[in-house]
Simulated assay, not measured.
Amino acid sequence: MRVLILGGTGFVGRAVAEEAARRGDEVTLFNRGRRGGVPGAVSLVGDRLAPDGLDALGAGEWDAVVDTWSAQGEAVRRTAELLSGRAGQYTYVSSRSVYRWLAPPPLTEDTELVDADEPGYAGDKLRGERGAAAFGGPVLLARAGLILGPYEDVGRLPWWLNRMARGGPTLAPGPRDLPVQLIDVRDLAAFVLDAAARRLAGPYTVVSPPGHTSMGELLEAANEVTGGRALLRWTDPDAIVAAGVEPWTQLPIWFPPGPEHEFMNTGDVSKAVAAGLRCRPARETVADTWAWLRDAGVAPQRDDRPRVGLDPAVEAKLLGEQLQGEQLQGEQLRGEQ
């Protein structure tokens, strides 16, 4: 295929570009030219927020367009309108954040969406979806869940990997068997390109099936690939929440059992699976991310997302309190005997 990727040098866009190049597709990237390109791809330079920023896309035809934009929806509308009639299919990489927060389960493509004027990331992604409709042809809305893998620029899995590499007693948010839904960025890329070749349209929730992995498998794999120096101390979620630790941001990937966890980790992805979605083992995602991180040295960080991770002092305090509780419990048991 002739594939145009709007972006193509960051996290998701780079994964799509590399997968398309691996398949032998003709790849064109359109971006601001601030990062290195992808070998074999043609690069067009432009700024979607500038008055004449789309001039480089004024000519050309493609079989598929992949758009990873996550800011103002108007930029998606203008681009989709410009490419109307010059491409076979348009994919907008959206997010399951467009579903109304804590909407009743099961979460499906028909779940109620956020309001059109919703501020922030969720609203921007919804407005991007609406803007993509200006393409006028088949538009696929890939509503991705938690995206992990090489080139991650949010910092969730890189933070855990670096924490494991530091070693020593390590706070592991429980319970150990807590299910996690995620999507390896390379599996997302493969799904998007396969769908584009078939000119699929409409919304698809793109994340692993429920129960694909767990916090235990993720953190134990992270510890293993980084050398096994961390001593995982599985900690009661109530104690973590009581200490004021923020799930998802201070402890990336994790939500304690409850409505938030259920919303994020029990989505119905049968539509995407029926359309060809395949998810690799989570351990492979962890190992490959660590290999990339060692080569990169420092993980990139998006400037439109907050930094994630737990302050070492807060972690040490929680671990100390947990140890004291275990010692006290042990003394009580010995006294009863």
Rank of each mutant, 00 (worst) to 15 (best):
A142Y: 02
A122G: 07
G136R: 06
T289C: 09
S214Q: 06
V207K: 00
V308F: 04
P252K: 08
Q324A: 15
R283V: 13
S270A: 15
E26T: 13
L140T: 01
F263P: 00
D288Y: 01
A272N: 06
M264W: 14
L178K: 03
A133Y: 00
Q181I: 02
G53Y: 01
G36I: 08
Q322C: 00
Y92G: 10
L83N: 08
P104S: 13
G244H: 13
A15R: 04
R78V: 14
W234H: 08
D311H: 12
G60F: 05
R163W: 09
T9I: 11
A122C: 05
R100D: 01
R143E: 02
P203H: 04
Q337N: 14
A41Y: 07
P247D: 13
G137V: 01
G297N: 09
G227V: 04
P104K: 12
T91K: 01
A165H: 09
N223I: 07
I183L: 13
G8H: 02
G85N: 11
D117W: 05
P106A: 13
L29E: 02
P312A: 07
A242V: 12
V185C: 09
A172P: 03
V269Y: 11
A272E: 08
V45R: 15
G60P: 12
L219K: 05
A299H: 10
P257Y: 00
A17E: 02
E262T: 15
G131R: 00
D124V: 04
G216I: 01
V298E: 15
